[in-house]
């Protein structure tokens, strides 16, 4: 059951695209962060059930967010959505606990497919 969603991306357009792609079955509040530090604050404050996370961001990047969540022992699924499509970026994100990796530019179908695979629908 998804009761709260956190979308993290420094681009307003990308956040909008992710929000538009979220499954309509999830009738939950959506919180938005524009960098890694804001993301960690909102994560603590709003206790999201799922996080959509960009990698390349100011202040603290997505790898830093993943490392911080891993250190806290968080089990909340994090789906990375990134323009950095290098194999090494994927491997690093997965090793830091990301549950899935979607390459930008993404489509709503990409998001739906991943959440289905993770049994979040």
């Amino acid at each position: 059951m998804i009761n709260s969603i956190l979308v993290v991306d420094d681009s307003k357009m990308s956040r909008k695209l992710v929000i538009r792609a979220l499954p309509t079955e999830w009738d939950a509040p959506i919180h938005q962060a524009t960098n890694g530090l804001e993301a960690l604050e909102l994560f603590k404050e709003k206790s999201p059930d799922i996080v959509f996370l960009d990698l390349t961001m100011p202040e603290l990047d997505g790898f830093g967010v993943l490392a911080a969540l891993q250190e806290q022992g968080s089990q909340v699924p994090v789906i990375v959505i990134s323009a950095d499509i290098q194999t090494q970026a994927y491997e690093r994100a997965i090793s830091l606990g990301a549950r899935a990796f979607i390459q930008k530019p993404m489509s709503p179908e990409d998001v739906r497919k991943v959440v289905q695979e993770l049994h979040l629908l």
Partner: peptide, 19 residues
Amino acid sequence: DALQEVVNIAMGQAGDSLA
């Protein structure tokens, strides 16, 4: 913002080619 994201995605592809 839109332009930066377009270039960000394009450079992600360029970075992958270089990697």
